[in-house]
Amino acid sequence: MSLELQDIAWHQSVGRLIETLDKPNFWIALVRLLQQYVPSDSWVILLFSRDRPAVFAECPGTDGGPDPLFQDYLKGLYLLDPFYIASRENNGAGLFRLADVAPECFEQTDYYQRYFRLNVVADEIQINVPLEGERTLCLSLGSRRPFSPEQIALLGLIQPWVMALMRQRLGFEQELLARPTAPAPAWQSRLETAGQKVENALTARELEIARLMLSGCSSKEVARKLAISAETVKVHRKHIYSKLGIKSQSELFALFLQAQDS
């Protein structure tokens, strides 16, 4: 069987990348190699866990400094990220597309309108490596245009290489892995008493429904996830709005944002 020149170039590039496994520029080198085959406009490598995400490397903002929108993400918006939610519900390995994990009403959410489409823009794909302790190492690529089926297929072919390299790199990330991470923001407690008396606090079920609503789940999706009826979901939503003194999901999102700064 003959090898194409492009196949040879790929293996040569991977060989050079392996030599950088212990170098500070490994993550950038890995992303640049992937971008030769699948162009992207943004990227980040982070660790999902029960605490706030730990960032291994990220693309710089437009001015070369930290991206302020991404800082908002790390402060608490990640709780509404379809990829984060999927990693917590099912810590699976492999390549995931936005279409695989996004809830039915994702594009109608304030999270999508006020963060995702401004920061990621159009589409996102993620390679996940599950780790011990309910953690997931993630390499995420964002694009201003939807990734094509051919690009997804190509990433699927090279995914085993990428995942193996990501795992091997962890041996040189012990300092970051050992660093304490900040706990997830207690936005629930803020919603429980946001402008209301303690006796009007949201129940645990109402809090869960509020989070699912904010992430873009339709009433049917919430019902399916929680094994209740769609009508029951609508009743819970009415109670949530009443207790919090709000009338819309946008107002609920505003309370969520306030909780990130508490």
Rank of each mutant, 00 (worst) to 15 (best):
E58R: 14
L252F: 08
S215K: 12
M163N: 08
Y241H: 07
A210S: 14
V129Q: 05
Q35K: 12
L202H: 05
N119H: 13
G156A: 03
P82L: 06
Q36A: 11
S42C: 00
S219G: 02
K234H: 06
K75M: 12
F147Y: 09
L139F: 11
L141V: 02
K238T: 14
L98E: 07
S218Y: 05
E132C: 05
L139A: 12
R190I: 04
G142P: 07
A57Y: 01
R169S: 14
I18N: 01
E199Y: 14
Q35D: 13
E89V: 06
I240M: 08
L154G: 08
Q108A: 07
D63S: 15
V44H: 03
A102T: 06
E192R: 15
P103V: 04
T109K: 03
I45W: 00
F256G: 00
K243R: 15
L191V: 08
S248I: 11
R97W: 01
T109W: 02
Q12D: 05
F253C: 07
R32G: 03
A9M: 10
L257I: 15
Q168M: 13
P180C: 06
I240T: 09
I158C: 00
R117D: 04
R16D: 13
V233F: 04
C105A: 06
Y73K: 11
P180E: 12
L139Y: 12
K197Y: 06
R52N: 09
F70P: 08
K247G: 15
M1G: 12
E206K: 07
R224M: 10
R167G: 14
G195Q: 13
A230C: 01
L191R: 05
G195P: 11
C59T: 10
V101Y: 04
A194R: 14
I228Q: 03
R224Y: 08
C59W: 02
E134A: 13
S242Y: 09
P39Q: 13
Q260T: 10
L46Q: 06
V233C: 11
V38R: 05
D100Q: 11
A204T: 03
F26G: 09
K220I: 06
R224W: 07
M163C: 12
A194V: 07
S148F: 03
A122D: 08
K243P: 00
E4I: 09
E124Y: 05
R190M: 04
P66I: 01
